Amino acid sequence: MREHFGRTLNAGGRIVIAAAAVAVLALAGCSGEVTDVDRAQAQVTAAEKAVTEAQSAMKAASDSFCTASRTYLQALDRYGDVFTQTTPTVGDVRKAGSDLAKPRDNALDGAEAAVAAQAELVAAQRELADARAALERAKAGPSGTPATSATPQPSATPLAPAATVDRVKTAESEFAAAQSAITDTTPLADASVQFNSAAVALEFSWLRLFVDAGCVPATQTEQAQAAVSAYVTTLQQDLAAAGYYTGAIDGVYGPQTAAAVEALQKESGLPVTGALDKATAAALQSKLLAVGGAAAQQDTATTAAVQQTLKLAGFWDGPVDGVWTPALTDALRSFQTKLGVEPTGAVDAATISALEKAIAQGKQATPTPTPSPSPTP
């Protein structure tokens, strides 16, 4: 149905151009003989008008998509807040999940409309290029040479990189799978790690699409995403080198990343939380050292990434040396407390989401200073 609708729009655009050209010719005929140049000029004038209208339609469709996407991101953000509560229930998850349906559909419809509007604009631009070329030929006459060379045909530029679109599709699929796994008998505490990671991955993926589609300028939102993505990318690379992660190195803390951390923890005899804490980081470093080679040379990269990311948030003033100390754990807990995340001292999907928000909003969540102890008498 949607393909048929798109074809109808294309046909309608050509009808409008032809009608406009006829109107121009009718006016030209009132003043004398209509020449080939007159006809060609009429086609150019009509095509220029069609391009202007298509540009307006494209802007309207893009604005609509950005508005719908922003609403969906806000809904996803509220959904993620369910997991920062101390006692989320299956009912909380389902209610919040049902609230996502309409914003998601609106965002997807908006994306489809923007793509269709872009195709219409490209088609109108091609019509204009052809009309201008025909005008040059008409001016040159039967035996002449057009004054200008052939005009390159416009081509459609994707609204967002294919990799960004594919990541959104993957995140939507992972999130749907996580939703379907929640039943009345599901121990939510056991499922929350995977479920939360799926929700955060979906929000991050849409945020990247939101930025790549030009809905926001290159502001702190993009910088924040890059900073957090750098940490997750490092973690994924280390997990892959240790043999625990086989997914894409995409900088998104999704279900596959959480599962890889869980596998490492299980094999190392640690509590299976899916979050990176001091003990898990040490276990990962040991695995990388056992692997040797290039992996052993980067065994401190993940911890260093934690330090660097917390430094960006204004929570770490120590060295970025890849050594996980009790002070780093305390800094992480302070950050989590300030942002309303459970202070576990471990990096999980909820913490990453809170960190991204803090940097994006330009708020350095500076810890509350601890009063200095009074001198001992």
Rank of each mutant, 00 (worst) to 15 (best):
K95A: 14
G97K: 06
G97I: 06
S98E: 13
A101D: 08
K102E: 09
P103D: 04
R104K: 10
D105A: 14
N106I: 00
L108F: 07
G110K: 06
A111T: 02
E112K: 12
A117Y: 02
E120K: 13
V122R: 02
A123V: 00
A123D: 06
E127L: 07
L128Q: 12
L128E: 09
L128M: 08
A129K: 03
D130A: 13
R132S: 10
R132P: 02
A133Q: 14
A134P: 02
A134N: 11
R137M: 05
A140M: 09
A140F: 06
G141Q: 06
S143T: 11
G144D: 05
G144R: 07
T148K: 14
A150T: 15
T151P: 00
P152S: 02
S155K: 13
T164G: 02
T164M: 08
T164W: 09
R167F: 01
K169L: 04
A171H: 10
E174H: 09
F175L: 11
A176G: 10
A176T: 14
I182Q: 07
D184V: 14
T185W: 04
T185D: 10
T185E: 10
T186Q: 11
P187K: 11
P187C: 08
A189C: 01
A189E: 12
D190E: 13
D190Q: 14
A191F: 11
S192E: 13
F195A: 06
S197Y: 04
S197G: 04
A199M: 03
V200G: 01
